[in-house]
Design a protein around this nucleic acid. Structure first.
Length: 482
RNA sequence: GGUCCCAUCGUCUAGUGGCCUAGGACACCACCCUCUCAAGGUGGAUGCACGGGUUCGAAUCCCGUUGGGACUGCCA
C-alpha cells in the first residue's frame, strides 16, 4: 500500500486565486486524512516570461495564512529541466515524438474548413531534424481511445481521433506544461491529481504521456487517480475572472476575513459536511471530506455567505483573542503584518488601547469583517467625531425640539454621576419632558456624540468618552444647528 | 463548429427508487427583542429545466430536448 501523495501545482500569477486556494485545500484534506499522507507544493514556473520570484513568496504566504503547510516543497518546476530533457530524449528514442516546423497560419490554411480541431499531423512522418523553428509534438495514437478514471465524475472516455498531436516543447527548447507536469508527477510519485475541471480535457493527453514514459523508461509508475473539481463561477455563471471578480485570497485577508472562516467556506464550495451544521471546524472537515462526495456542477462564490460565516467565527472568539486579532486593523505594529491599503481614520498616537479594549466586546458582536471596526469607533479617538452631514440634518438640525433636548441634556450631564445607567436615565428623563421616547431622543444625542446614527450602544460610548468631551460635543452640535 | 462536463429554492447544498406534501444554510420579507445598528428568536415566500420511457412507485434509473459551462495555444 503506497502512501497518499498529493500535490498543489500553481503557476505564479501575482496573487493567490480563490479557486487555487480551494484546490489546494481539497488536496490538503486528502493528505491530512491519510496516514503519512504528503502534501507537496510545486510551483509551475516553466513559462519563464510570466513568472516572478516574489509571486512564489505570495503563494506560500497565503497558504500559510490558511494553514495549508506543504510537507514537501515549494519546488520549482524550472529546477527539473534536466529531467524534462531526459524524458524528451527517451520518448524520442521510443518513437513517440517528432519535430514540427509548422506555423499556426500554415496549419490553418491547410485545414481550410476541416472541422477537426488542433494540429493536422503534417510533420508526423516528415522526419524533420531539430532546428531553431521546430517544436516537438507527441504522436497521439490514431486508433482507440483513453479513459480517464475520475473519482468525482466516473469514467470519461476520449477518442484518440479528437486528440491532436500536441506540442510538448517549444522551438526555443522550453518544455511545456503537458509534459513537465507529467514528468514531475511521476518523479514525485503523486498518487492523486486533484485539480480544477478545466484540466479534464488535458488529462487523456497526460495519461498517454505517462504511459509512454512508463514504456520508455522501464519504470512502470501507476497513473494517478484523478479528481476534477467543479469550477468556481461568478453571477454570470462564468469561470471566475481575475479582471471582473474579487479572486485574490490576499484581498479577503486584508479585509479581515479569518482564515478559519475562509477555509470553512471554501470547503462548502462543491462539498458539504454531514448534518445540517455548516460551520464546521477544520479537524472535522478533514475527517469527513471525501472526494467521491464532491458535487459535479459549478459553484458560485458567494461573498455574502462567506461574510456571514466570518461574523459567526468572529463572535465566537474569546474577547482577548478578538482584541489581539483585531490589532492590525486598529493599531498596526509597524514591525508586524498589517493589511495592505489600510487607511485608519486616526493617527497611531491617537489610538487608546484601554479605551479600545473597553468598547471591543460591543464591537465584536456587531461586525462581520475586521475592517468594519475602525469606522465604527473612530469618534472615540478623534478630537472631533467625523460628522455625517445627512444624519446631522435629519436628527439635529431639522427639529427645534432636538436642539432644546441637547441643551437641557448638556446642562444635566454636568452634575450627574457618570455611568451608563445614569446616562440612560438622564436621556430618558430629558426626552420625556418633551414627550419624546428614548428611541427618538437618542438620535440627536448619538449624532452629536458619535457623528453617526448607527454605532455601538450610546451610553457605554458616552461613559467611555468622558463627561467633558461628551458635553462639549452636545453643546457644539446644538450651537451649530442654530 | 468539434470534444467533454454539468442541470434540486436567487445562491451553496442534503437527497443515491418509497422516510420528500423535497431538509439545511446565505440572501430576502414579516413579527418579536431593542437606545441606533447588529446579534438572537419566531414565522414566511421561493426549487427537482422540459418531454418521453422503465417501475406498483422517480428529484433519484434510461433516452431525447433545451439550457449553461470548460477545452479547442509553441499558456497553465
Amino acid at each position: 500500500m503506497t502512501a497518499t501523495r498529493v500535490r498543489f501545482a500553481p503557476s505564479p500569477t501575482g496573487y493567490f486565486h480563490v479557486g487555487s486556494a480551494r484546490s489546494a485545500l481539497f488536496n490538503w484534506f486528502v493528505a491530512r486524512q491519510a496516514d503519512d499522507g504528503v502534501f507537496l507544493l510545486r510551483i509551475e514556473d516553466t513559462d519563464a516570461d510570466r513568472n516572478r520570484e516574489e509571486w512564489v513568496d505570495g503563494i506560500v504566504e497565503a497558504m500559510e495564512w490558511l494553514g495549508l503547510h506543504a510537507d514537501e516543497g515549494p519546488f520549482r518546476q524550472s529546477d527539473n529541466a534536466p529531467a524534462h530533457q531526459a524524458a524528451i530524449d527517451q520518448l524520442f528514442a521510443g518513437g513517440y515524438l517528432y519535430f514540427c516546423d509548422c506555423t499556426g497560419d500554415a496549419v490553418q490554411s491547410r485545414k481550410g474548413d476541416n472541422k477537426t480541431p488542433g494540429y493536422d499531423g503534417f510533420c508526423r512522418d516528415r522526419g524533420l531534424e531539430r532546428s531553431a523553428t521546430t517544436g516537438i509534438r507527441f504522436k497521439t495514437p490514431l486508433e482507440g481511445g483513453t479513459t480517464v478514471r475520475d473519482l468525482i465524475r466516473g469514467d470519461v472516455e476520449f477518442s484518440h481521433s479528437v486528440i491532436d498531436d500536441f506540442i510538448i516543447a517549444k522551438s526555443s527548447g522550453a518544455v511545456l506544461f503537458a509534459l513537465a507536469n507529467v514528468v514531475d508527477d511521476r518523479n514525485d510519485r503523486i498518487t492523486h491529481v486533484i485539480r480544477g475541471e478545466e484540466h479534464l480535457p488535458n488529462t487523456p493527453k497526460q495519461i498517454l504521456l505517462w504511459e509512454a514514459l512508463n514504456a520508455v523508461t522501464g519504470v512502470a509508475t501507476p497513473t494517478p487517480v484523478y479528481a476534477h473539481l467543479p469550477l468556481l463561477v461568478n453571477e454570470q455563471r462564468k469561470k471566475l475572472s481575475k479582471r471582473k471578480d474579487p479572486v485574490a485570497t490576499e484581498q479577503y485577508r486584508d479585509e479581515g476575513y479569518l482564515p478559519e472562516a475562509f477555509v470553512n467556506y471554501l470547503a462548502l464550495l462543491g462539498w458539504s459536511p454531514r448534518g445540517d451544521e455548516e460551520k464546521v471546524p477544520v479537524a472535522q472537515l478533514i475527517a469527513e471530506f471525501r472526494l467521491e462526495d464532491v458535487s459535479h456542477s459549478p459553484a458560485f462564490f458567494d461573498v455574502k455567505k462567506l461574510q456571514h460565516l466570518n461574523g459567526e467565527y468572529i463572535r465566537e472568539m474569546p474577547l482577548e483573542q478578538f482584541i489581539a486579532h483585531s490589532m492590525p486593523w486598529v493599531s498596526p505594529d509597524p514591525a508586524a503584518w498589517s493589511p495592505s491599503a489600510l487607511s485608519l481614520p486616526w493617527r497611531p498616537e491617537q489610538f487608546d488601547y484601554e479605551r479600545y479594549a473597553t468598547i471591543a466586546p460591543l464591537v465584536q458582536e456587531r461586525i462581520s469583517l475586521m475592517s468594519e471596526i475602525a469606522p465604527m469607533i473612530d469618534f472615540l479617538f478623534l478630537p472631533e467625531p467625523p460628522m455625517d452631514a445627512e444624519a446631522f440634518a435629519k436628527s439635529v438640525a431639522k427639529d427645534e425640539t432636538a436642539r432644546v433636548i441637547l441643551r437641557e441634556l448638556a446642562a444635566e450631564l454636568s452634575t450627574t454621576s457618570w455611568d451608563r445607567d445614569t446616562l440612560h436615565a438622564c436621556v430618558v428623563g430629558v426626552g420625556e419632558r418633551h414627550e419624546w421616547n428614548l428611541r427618538k431622543t437618542q438620535a440627536p444625542v448619538r449624532c452629536a456624540v458619535t457623528g453617526k446614527l448607527v454605532g455601538p450602544p450610546l451610553f457605554e460610548s458616552m461613559e467611555l468618552l468622558g463627561r467633558d468631551e461628551t458635553i462639549r460635543r452636545i453643546v457644539d452640535a446644538a450651537e451649530r444647528a442654530s
